[in-house]
């Protein structure tokens, strides 16, 4: 589907682990700015692989190849320096990954440290407060900023990781099943948070939880065996899917 204001565009993207097996097959899609787009599908359908390609995570593993184009604001990120891309593209992983040796404070600023950017004390304080406020963690941790991030609960850790990604003011935030390791209450917190955040940042979220996709996303993709089967408004897809396989998945007849 053509969008008015796309920030990210996949053009015939293929990801292969070996010559024979393609994890993602010729996916083309546009992602609209300042919205939440969900990617759904049974496990092994290539949804995480596609998401990780946007952050060039495949560069870490020499056996993975990505073909096609991924355009971020019109520029193909596959030809850009990974470090420049990753600064503009934030990522939140399935399990919370606060850096174990850093305090909460340092974790929020980790993006700057890792990019070799020096901030003044004022800038640091402001960034930490505003980022933690934007993930509504500030009130909970403002007195324990010097504690290690790993002391927080799972939900708090995940919000810390979102704050850490937001600190670099990314154009787009990738989330790889960010609530699958969390309890229902923490999950609800994160979902509410994402709905607030979409005013400032574009969110692309992989989820195996159909309810979650329905609750928070404005558009949804359904992937199956590496192919993008259907991409539509979330409401339309859930009420009237056009493909049989999407229907089977949404009605629980397929894993």
């Amino acid at each position: 589907m053509e969008l008015i204001n796309p920030i990210l565009e996949f053009k015939k993207v293929c990801v292969s682990y070996t010559k024979q097996t393609m994890a993602v097959k010729y996916v083309s899609a546009q992602i609209e700015q300042n919205s939440i787009t969900a990617i759904m599908g049974p496990s092994g359908c290539g949804k995480s692989t596609l998401l990780r390609a946007v952050n060039l995570m495949h560069n870490l593993y020499p056996n993975i190849h990505v073909d096609g184009e991924i355009l971020l604001n019109g520029a193909d990120i596959l030809t850009m320096e990974p470090i420049d891309v990753r600064r503009k593209v934030g990522m939140v992983f399935q399990r919370p990954t606060p850096f174990p040796t850093m305090s909460i404070y340092d974790n929020v600023l980790a993006g700057f440290t890792l990019n070799g950017i020096r901030l003044s004390k004022n800038e640091r304080e402001e960034t930490v407060e505003s980022c933690l406020r934007s993930v509504s963690l500030w009130d909970e941790v403002k007195d324990v900023l010097n504690k290690k991030g790993t002391f927080l609960s799972g939900g708090q850790q995940q919000r810390l990781c979102i704050a850490r990604a937001l600190a670099l003011k990314p154009d787009i935030l990738l989330m790889d099943e960010p609530t699958s390791a969390l309890d229902p209450i923490a999950t609800k917190h994160i979902e509410e948070l994402l709905l607030q955040l979409k005013n400032d940042v574009t969110i692309l979220i992989v989820t195996h939880n159909m309810g979650q996709a329905k609750r928070i996303s404005s558009r949804s993709m359904f992937m199956y065996l590496g192919e993008l089967i259907e991409y539509d408004d979330t409401q339309k897809m859930f009420s009237d899917p056009s493909d049989e396989r999407t229907k089977a998945y949404l009605t629980g007849k397929m894993g």
């Binding site: 990522m91 993006g111 890792l114 850490r164």
Partner: peptide
């Protein structure tokens, strides 16, 4: 991965 995702070299 988390470190690299933040753009660190």
């Amino acid at each position: 991965e988390a470190g690299l995702a933040l753009g660190g070299n």
